[in-house]
Design a protein around this nucleic acid. Structure first.
Length: 115
RNA sequence: UUGGUGGACCAUGCAGUCGCCGGAAGGAGUAAUCCUUCGGGAGGAAAGUCCGGGCUCCAUAGGACAUGGUGCCGGGUAACACCCGGGAGCCGUAAGGCUAUAGAAAGUGCCGCAGAAAAUAUACCGCCUCUUCCCAUGGGAAGAGGUAAGGGUGAAAUGGCGAGGUAAGAGCUCACCGCGAACCCUGGUAACAGGGUCGGCAGGGGAAACCUCAUCAGGAGCAAGAUCAAGUAUGCAGGAGGGUUGUCCGCCCGUUUCCUGCGGGUAGAUCGCUUGAGCAUACCGGUAACGGUAUGCCUAGAUAGAUGACUGCAUAACACAGAACCCGGCUUAUGGUCCACCAAUUUU
RNA sequence: UGGGAUGUAGUGUAAGGGUAACACAGCAGUUUCUGGUACUGCAUUUAGGGGUUCGAAUCCCUUCAUCCCAG
């Protein structure tokens, strides 16, 4: 599978975001919370939401890009048909390797790997 | 060497792998779309939104009042609360810096406490003269008057200092200094500066108190505004005017229209959107800000929002920080490099 | 993104340029066998910085924080 991340793989509408928050299951590690909900598209979609108190716009943009990058590299190994929402709280690790370990831990908790 | 002052510049580059958003060319496909190649992709402050403009709609932005901004002089600019040059005042040993720098004699108001008096001038302690009385040769008390030199209060006390003058004093007179809705000469476009004459003290502060004078400003803002598509109910009730604006005039639209409220529907796409008061280089004009001419260049345009991750080398580049219609400034945040100048100390 | 508003003790509010005030809360003390009530006292650089003024919470500039409106 190609490791791309196009616009169709991002959750955009407010009604869909609300649906994730109302019906999704919650898995969390320190300073990061993941909600997943099934969709009817057959593919996975993602949204990253840093809370308002996380920092300046530069810091919020950076953490969003970093999580998108890790998700892009890992999504080929995951089951499909889910919407993902990552909520980031102040204190999140900045290092790429630590973030990667945290996300893999979350995916394992949710039993999302194909094998 | 240490401390300081002023200014200029940079804000990463190269290579590899995987990705993101536009553009151009080619190809596949009915189309949606996909593939290949080439080339581009955040800032000096993009920030705060403090000023000024462009642009769009309302009338082409008109008149008066209100309201608000600005405020030494000259220049620059599309414009400005910006910039450049000059004047004056203040601060600093200096290099340099700062200034909402018009008018207090148009008018109104304010100056707590203290102090006699806080702006009409006046008189607490004093000083001096005269009259009366008392003790007796020098004082004391009371009354009438003159005066502002001295004391004291205050942030601030009605020109300063010296001499003459006087009963004591006083711009009462004089010299010097200061002052001036005053006049003349010289220099300067001007602000202003220098000099002279005259006046003879006119009179405190504050205009970032109201205000006066001069000058500027019409309102709203790209969620402006325009087009297409989809969808709903040319629905119900009230009003006759509505818009331009804070008010009036004027102007524009209008009764098949418009406004207000309730109810219902859609929550999509395209344009605006990046060629611009643009950038670079050279020459010319100007003290400078800046302007002119020539040649060359095209350099983000997303729409829940594109720049990331990993690795190596170089390096000071690891800081502050992310375009959202676009420009010119100001202010604030922040890593570094270089230049010039000043002061002190040391050495020659 | 655009348009506005407000910052005063821990909280809620006052204050005409001239000593920062009131209520509740907090702390300490007195009263009581103890607690409550009551009484007395204490704590605030008026969000930060600068300017005007003899003097600033107040007037002006600037920065920061919080809140509201427009989808």
């Amino acid at each position: 599978m190609r490791k791309s991340l196009t616009k169709n793989e991002i959750v955009k509408k407010k009604s869909e975001i609300d649906r994730i928050f109302q019906t999704g299951k919650v898995y969390s590690v320190p300073h990061l919370r993941m909600r997943i909900a099934r969709n009817t598209l057959g593919t996975n979609r993602i949204i990253v939401i840093p809370v308002k108190k996380y920092g300046s716009s530069v810091q919020r943009n950076r953490i969003r890009r970093q999580i998108k990058e890790i998700w892009r590299l890992e999504k080929g190994n995951l089951l499909s048909g889910f919407d993902f929402a990552f909520i980031v709280y102040p204190g999140m690790a900045v290092s790429h390797n630590q973030q990667k370990q945290q996300l893999i831990h979350l995916f394992t908790l949710a039993h999302l790997y194909t094998r």
